[in-house]
Design a protein around this nucleic acid. Structure first.
Length: 335
DNA sequence: AGATCCCGCCAAAGT
DNA sequence: ACTTTGGCGGGATCT
């Protein structure tokens, strides 16, 4: 059922005697032993090579969603260990995925080893809240160095990072392209690091680490259908991402339906909603994912200037990103 | 060579 | 003390 996804074709049949040079009949048991030995003779199929892609978080998440669809019935319980086994991965990888999905309200940590899967049932409303939160954090301004970068909590950093990464898309005009460099810049809290004045070396390490995480996050976001990687842009070599959610129906590799536009309008994002909860995640644990406590915004009092709608075509998009990128490059290191 | 990011060590949080 | 979570970055792989 599962696990068959990777199989591309059936290995070519061949008679045992061809392989063993033996014409004598052997019992099934002996056969097995023989085959095992023969198999060991052959060079172990490249343990890596093509396999790396197969092991990507995106693929893994795809397979995970195969087991637990975004658009399923009622909530379902997920056992991490057994799921990991079914998917044939280390349990550690399950944490990578489930943490991000949890941050998207797709699942809730119920108890040890157990999550309650809600799928995308809450996604739309949650995205609305994320956008609000993003505006509250003034991420749009922060992106352009017009506002301080919001401090980041210490727990659930992957989940928080995922949420904030997504906020960037929600807060910006539709179709804004965002690259990882831009994102990391706002998402790294450089301001108050206690007294630890990050040495330029540590800074670089931190930066790289954050980028790694964003790659991970981007991969599951892509799997969920929230964002897309925009490839082949002529201006920037680095990849940029584009928001395409919520609920872009995953195009199944196998069957292609006739319908064309599986993209749900983003109208939901424009409506207002009272966002009262900062603590998004239920649960009594210390490892609670929380939105940054209400930023004590008394220093800068600017109205949120999120542009209403700026339908822009490709070039505008690219130029926007290019502009920001150039600005960064020219500006060098900034606080 | 630089971008991408899998893998798993090991420490913190939880029981 | 033991187990479960998950931060983190070395280095393999891909472009």
């Amino acid at each position: 059922m599962y696990e068959d996804d990777n199989i591309t074709c059936t290995p070519k049949r061949c008679v045992l005697t061809e392989v063993t040079n033996s014409a004598n009949y052997v019992s099934p048991t002996a056969n097995l032993k023989l085959l095992t030995n023969v198999a060991l003779q052959y060079p172990t199929p490249p343990p890596s090579a093509v396999h790396r892609k197969e092991k990507s978080l995106q693929i893994l998440c795809d397979r995970f969603l195969n087991l637990y669809p975004l658009h399923g019935e009622g909530p379902v319980e997920i056992q991490l260990d057994s799921t990991a086994a079914r998917l044939g991965v280390e349990k550690r990888r399950m944490y990578d995925i489930i943490n991000i999905l949890e941050a998207m309200q797709c699942a809730v940590h119920k108890r040890k080893n157990t999550y309650l899967w809600h799928g995308g049932a809450r996604l739309n409303s949650f995205l609305k809240m994320l956008k609000k939160q993003g505006e509250h954090l003034r991420l749009s301004e922060a992106l352009r160095g017009k506002a301080p970068k919001p401090p980041t909590p210490k727990h659930k950093t992957l989940g928080v990072l995922a949420q904030r990464f997504l906020m960037l898309f929600l807060v910006e005009p539709q179709n804004t392209l965002i690259n990882l460099e831009m994102a990391v810049r706002v998402l790294i809290d450089t301001s108050s690091k206690n007294k630890t004045v990050l040495s330029p070396e540590q800074q670089d390490r931190q930066h790289k680490s954050k980028v790694r995480r964003l790659y991970d996050i981007a991969n599951v976001f892509i799997s969920i259908g929230l964002i897309e990687k925009v490839s082949g842009n002529l201006i920037l070599k680095k990849p940029v991402f584009k928001y395409v959610g919520p609920f872009k129906i995953k195009k199944c590799e196998k069957s292609v339906l006739s319908s064309v536009s599986p993209i749900t309008p983003l109208s939901v994002l424009d409506s207002q909603q009272k966002a009262s909860a900062y603590h998004v995640f239920a649960g009594r644990s210390k490892r609670k994912l929380e939105f940054t406590s209400p930023t004590s915004t008394k220093e800068l009092k600017l109205g949120v200037t999120t542009p209403p709608h700026t339908p822009s075509h490709k070039w505008d998009e690219i130029l926007l990103v290019a502009d920001m990128e150039l600005t960064r490059i020219n500006k060098g290191v900034v606080l």
